[in-house]
Amino acid sequence: MEETEQKERAGDPGSQDQASSVLLEDLSYPIDYLGESQLVIEDDALLKWARSRRLSPREAQIEALKSRIIPLRYAKNFHSLTLAEQKRICESRILVCGCGGLGGVLISLLARAGAGTLRLVDGDVFIPSNFNRQWFCDTQHLSRPKAEVAGERVRAINPLIEVEVFSTPMDENNAGALVGGMDLVMDALDNLPSRFLLAEAAKQFRIPFIHAAVAGWWGQVSTFLPESLLNLHDIYGHEIERDPTEDVLGVLGPAPAVIGSLAAFEAIRLLSGRNPAYADQLLYLDGESGRMDVIPLRENFSGKR
């Protein structure tokens, strides 16, 4: 729809010239925010300006922030974030592997935060047992590919960002291509072999890697920066498959919601240029007791493999 509009405008030189003469500043307006005047711009105005300049929405939101104009949808990110930090988030490219329980939460939050490009990967389709915890699994989405639905939801949540959808599983053949060019790799997968594969690809391309996992009442988050001497084997030991007893545990809805949110916080810290909270550490959530611990990891297993 937008592409058609863009072509129509491009085919009409008169309207193109007129539109391109419109300044971003003319489409924005000041709001009073915490006692300061701040220029903001709404989605429709920014998208119109983007079309007139033949910019992608992603490029347009970066241009706005460069001009110190905040897309109104990000207004409440301030003063938690600086303008420069918001711009960094808008410029970032993130791979999210897994669009299920963890992925649904992560993807929603990153899209709302303005993460510039979201590359979404999942080879599964939604089934009825996903309803209890997977935010993108609605009654009308049963049997549909998870990544495709996630892509649609991202476009509905935030038209200013780019989304790339891969409805095929990640494997040895495509892992490098999926990871390449990303600023951050997020593990929201549901099996250990794929997690190890993704972690290795992130390491090979020297991209920060955030690991998140859940079962039952429990969940964990860990971050491995490219220079880290540790890896996922320092969490899982010599296990290469998920503990089969975990299937019996299932997953309670709040587990991926909390763990996905903690992983999204970690992503926002890294993307905005701040220090990670969980580098070489393991956050472990025990939802049953309500306790959460952050434990430093050390090289237990990786050096012995």
Binding site: R195, V214, I235, D243
Partner: peptide, 10 residues
């Protein structure tokens, strides 16, 4: 000493 089983689901 703390002991726990890491989880792997998503």
């Amino acid at each position: 000493v703390g002991i726990f089983p890491p989880v792997g689901g998503g």
